[in-house]
Design a protein around this nucleic acid. Sequence first.
DNA 1: GTCTATAATATGATAGAC
DNA 2: GTCTATCATATTATAGAC
Lengths: 203, 203
Amino acid sequence: MSGATTRAHIVDAADQLFYQHGYEHTSFAAIADAVQLSRGNFYYHFKSKDDILDAVISARLARTKHMLEQWEAEEVDPACRVRKFVHILLTNRVDIQSYGCPVGTLTTELAKLRHASFAEANGLFTLFRAWLRDQFVLLGHDAAADSLAMHLLAFSQGVATLANAFLDEEFVRREVQQMCDWLSAQTATAERGVHGRHEQTSA
Amino acid sequence: MSGATTRAHIVDAADQLFYQHGYEHTSFAAIADAVQLSRGNFYYHFKSKDDILDAVISARLARTKHMLEQWEAEEVDPACRVRKFVHILLTNRVDIQSYGCPVGTLTTELAKLRHASFAEANGLFTLFRAWLRDQFVLLGHDAAADSLAMHLLAFSQGVATLANAFLDEEFVRREVQQMCDWLSAQTATAERGVHGRHEQTSA
DNA sequence: GTCTATAATATGATAGAC
DNA sequence: GTCTATCATATTATAGAC
């Protein structure tokens, strides 16, 4: 097997295991088992476990960037794009109920470990935050765009955490519905703001 | 030192360390260091690390129960009580920014570990959930009370996770303010419901 | 009730053969 | 590029002295 391919396989397996069992709880042995490789051989591809983590984060960043670009390509209406974000809670519901949000749970774990890669992992949040902000700017919420983006991120994290804790599908559907309703109201407000009166400042 | 006292000290230290660094990342050595005791002596008080976890969860459950009773004693108005819950995000803001929510982060970690004590840890969420539900019932939201309780829990988890990720005090204050405003609107709705028309069903 | 060994295991990481 | 040892360390847990 070529070096690049093996490396990609390792990153893939580590990505899944870090998500499912957490970074610290995932041992080299577990990754080796998943890719059917000897432990020793790992160090040909990565110099340490932290190195694998960095590779996993890079892969997630690239994948997320690509997904957000896809969303922009698929939907021209920024309101629809934002709804697409809200709906990942349903799209990934089963995994979220089992393992929580891959972004939130990794960030939380690395924060507790005071891990050097905390900032890189947080870059995943920043990617979503900036993308959502852009959509809200397009919707006319200039000053409040970033606050709205953070509000949506908080919503998704809260729902993911409780979905994982209570394994309650109805709860997830209800919250997604409520958020979509709220978004429609916000969009209507922005429209009025654009056409009629000045946009309110954030906070 | 008496057995009961030493045991309480161990639980205290473990409680803090589990919160600050996570359950798995906290070693016996770290707890021993904190309470100035030899590793070996631990097994006189607890038969395993999981046993300490159970003791920590029990302590947290008792402490939380007591706190909720205090809140009920201090405020007669259920709306004020609910606001008290929302305001823990400000009361514990510094710790939350550093380590996240003690309930949410433990539950998330134990879920990933598929740990036997996951259900017990989740009891902390259930405690808040039931208490909040009771307050909303008192406010006249009979059918929607549990949904509202879950909504508030999700809110607090989302804000805590992002506060931990972005260390943004203004974000926390803004979200707390928004939630309090939303609660006032909900309370007003319930009042109208009680005096004028039938309460809406959940969902 | 607390201590000092010490066992048993698992981990991240290295060396060197093929 | 992959393997089989092997190391050093850290972990949970036990045994037995005081």
